[in-house]
Computed example of a mutant assay.
Amino acid sequence: MSFDQKLKAFPSVREHYDAMTAAGEVDPDQAQLALADRFDRLIEELGEKRLSKKSSALGWLFGRKAASRAPVKGLYIHGEVGRGKTMLMDMFHALVPVKRKRRAHFNDFMADVHERIHAHRQAFKRGETKQEDPIPPVADALAEAAWVLCFDEFTVTDIADAMILSRLFSALFERGVVLVATSNVKPDDLYRDGLNRQLFLPFIDLLRRHVEIVNLDSRTDYRLEKLNRQPVYVTPLGPEACRQMDAAWEAAKGSAEEQADVLMVKGHEVPIPRAAGDAARFSFGDLCSRPFGASDYMAIVRRYHRIFIDDVPVLDYARRNEAKRFILLIDTLYDHHVRLVLSAEAAPEKLYVAPSGTEAFEFDRTASRLFEMQSAEYLETAGNGDPRAGAQEATFGV
């Protein structure tokens, strides 16, 4: 049964989850069951809120209820990697009867925000608008495009993001936007050890007022249960690793001609040393030793759906900037369902050796994703672009 058929047959998150357990696709888990029920309550609350805004008699009836007049609180779901947070949120996003909804990786969303802010400031300089502050018009545009925002992997490591989140989300919440997010960290740990963190703390208070915080304390890591290793992560480094990477690259190229490429991103170049068709090959230094950010990595995955990375070293605190970029890179590749072939000095869980710091905390997710990107389930559909492309536009109901 296809995903769309399941949605028609099982119109609630709980029913969809129960069907998956009956089919043996997941093992029943009490924490996940409770979250499925909470998602269904949120769907009901959003449905009542939507109806209360309509001019029909039914909308007037719902509109009289205090619960419908009150703002709908979203959900912030945190827990360790591989606990099923994203799976359940994706069910919710598909089933919620709201046209204006958006499901995105948080880094992608913030890159879009910064692009909109930059465009508004340029328009102000050109005299095309008298509004100097970009936050209100950007919030207007975002709220108009999506009333329900679903973020996967909500994490804050960039100071540019940290400094605008409080104002941005204050404006979004004032416009009625409902936030649903998954994260590996509880709200109090967001932007932990970040520069000028005291300026970020109002956002945590704001978040607590507008979302219900749920800890998904599930019993096991389902990603590791599904793991079925494929020869796409080659370790240790050495002549044999080089041979395997070259063989995989030749197979990926096929008859396509190999050449260098250059992508232009916000006025600067992102070199692609080796490209053939929809495949691109880099060294670790090409991608992580340069001052690249989310928009650069997104430009790469929009153009190339199969990525090869040679010679990923073991990283420590002295190389934490490269580690941050590597974390962001893997997040981007994973979220866009890119097929990754990689050679590394050590296994995923041993690639970052610093005992503390934000990067050590974040790298747990990176290691988990590197494992999952080797699984048969991931590889069956990887390499053809993001399978969720267009999901932001999917609608159910009115």
Rank of each mutant, 00 (worst) to 15 (best):
F169A: 06
V72G: 05
G74F: 04
H120R: 10
D188C: 02
L190T: 01
A104P: 10
T86H: 12
S183F: 04
Y191T: 01
L75V: 03
H114E: 08
M91L: 08
T157D: 01
F200N: 00
I77V: 15
G127I: 06
S183D: 02
D108Y: 12
K65V: 00
V138S: 07
Q122V: 14
T182P: 04
L149E: 01
D133T: 09
D90L: 00
L149H: 05
W147S: 14
F62Y: 14
K85C: 13
G59D: 04
R197Q: 04
M87W: 11
R100D: 11
L165V: 07
K125Q: 15
G84L: 11
A141K: 14
R121F: 12
A181T: 08
L199F: 08
T182Q: 05
A67L: 07
D193G: 00
L201M: 12
V138E: 05
A123K: 13
Y76W: 02
A94W: 08
V81Y: 14
Q198A: 08
A94F: 03
G82Y: 05
F62A: 06
H93K: 04
D161S: 09
D140T: 09
T155N: 11
A70F: 05
E132A: 15
E128Q: 15
A145D: 15
E80I: 08
R126N: 13
V180M: 02
K99D: 15
D133N: 15
Q131S: 09
A67S: 14
A139H: 07
A104S: 15
K186L: 01
R102E: 10
L142I: 15
V98S: 07
